[in-house]
Design a protein around this nucleic acid. Sequence first.
DNA 1: TATAGAATTGACGTAAACGTAAAAGGTGCG
DNA 2: CGCACCTTTTACGTTTACGTCAATTCTATA
Lengths: 153, 153
Amino acid sequence: MKLVSPGEAAANTNDIPVEAGEEFVRIGEMAKKYGVTLRTLRFYEDKGLLNPHRDGSTRLYTRRDKARLKLILLGRKVGFSLRDVKQMMDLYDPTGTNTRQLRLALDKSEKQLARLQKQRALIDDAINELSASMTQVRHMLTERTAPQASAAG
Amino acid sequence: MKLVSPGEAAANTNDIPVEAGEEFVRIGEMAKKYGVTLRTLRFYEDKGLLNPHRDGSTRLYTRRDKARLKLILLGRKVGFSLRDVKQMMDLYDPTGTNTRQLRLALDKSEKQLARLQKQRALIDDAINELSASMTQVRHMLTERTAPQASAAG
DNA sequence: TATAGAATTGACGTAAACGTAAAAGGTGCG
DNA sequence: CGCACCTTTTACGTTTACGTCAATTCTATA
C-alpha cells in the first residue's frame, strides 16, 4: 500500500495522505494535530482506546480515530479516567440509538460533576486557609512580636 | 523508661502518658488524635518531617511533634508537597526570628496560591464543558434525532 | 502462661499517564 | 550510498503519599 503526496503543514519526509475521501494520517501528524505525543497515541491504543489501521506495522489514523481521540481528550479534560472513557466508548454501536452508552455517559458525568464541585470546594477552602496563613506570616515578618503557630516547626 | 497511667479516650492496653509537663504519646494515640494512620506517621518520620523520641524502639511523640504534625497537615491541606513542607520546617530556628523561614513560606505560598487559582479555573472549565456535554447527551436521549459528536465513539 | 493488642522494620504494591531509552526497520533526498 | 527522519516494539522509570502484607517482638491482662 502506497501513500500519497505530502500534506499541508507537514514536516514529514515520508508520504502523507491528504487526498480525497480516505484520509490516512500517520502517528506523527496525528500527534501534532492534536497536541499529544507519539507515546500517548501508542499508549491509548495499548489501552484499547484507539484502533488505527495498519500499513504493515505503520499506524494509519482515519477521521474515525480522530473523532475518538477528540472524545478521549474531552474526557480527560473534564476529569474522566481513561478507563471511564474506554468503558463509555466500548458501548458505542453505530447501528443503534446508543441509549445504554448515553445513559452510562450521563451517569458517569453526574458523578464526575459532583467530584469536580467537591474539588472546587476543597480548593476554595485551601485558598482561604492559605490566604489566612499568608496574612499571619506577613504580620510576623513586619512586626517582630509573639510568634503564632503558623509557620514554625 | 516507664510510662504512666492510661489516658482519657484511649483504647490502649499499654500505658499511656497523660501526666503533667512531659506528655508522651505513642503512635497509636497520635494517629487517632490527628486522623492519620500509623503508616503515615512512620512515613513522615522516614521523610524527615517528624522526629519522635524513642523508648527503645517505641516512638514517643511530644507536643512538639504534634505541632509539627499540625503544620504538615495544614501544608497538605493547602496543597504543599511534603518536600515543600519539609523544606520550610527545616529552616526553623527556635532562637531566631525565622525571617528566612517566613520568607520562604511566603514565597512558596504565593506560588501555591497561584497554582490553586489556576486549578480552580481549570475545574470551572471542566465543569462548564461537562455540563454542556451533559445537556447534549440529555437531548440525544430524549429526542431520537441526529447524533452529535458528543458521546459517540 | 497463653493470648490479644500494640508496636517494630522491611519491602513490595498502587494509582495515572505517560516519559525515556534502546535497538532496529523503513524511506526519500542529495 | 548514506544520512536524516520517521516509525516500530519492549520495557523500565517517574511521581506522590501512602496501603498492605509479613515476620517479629513487646507488653499487659485474664
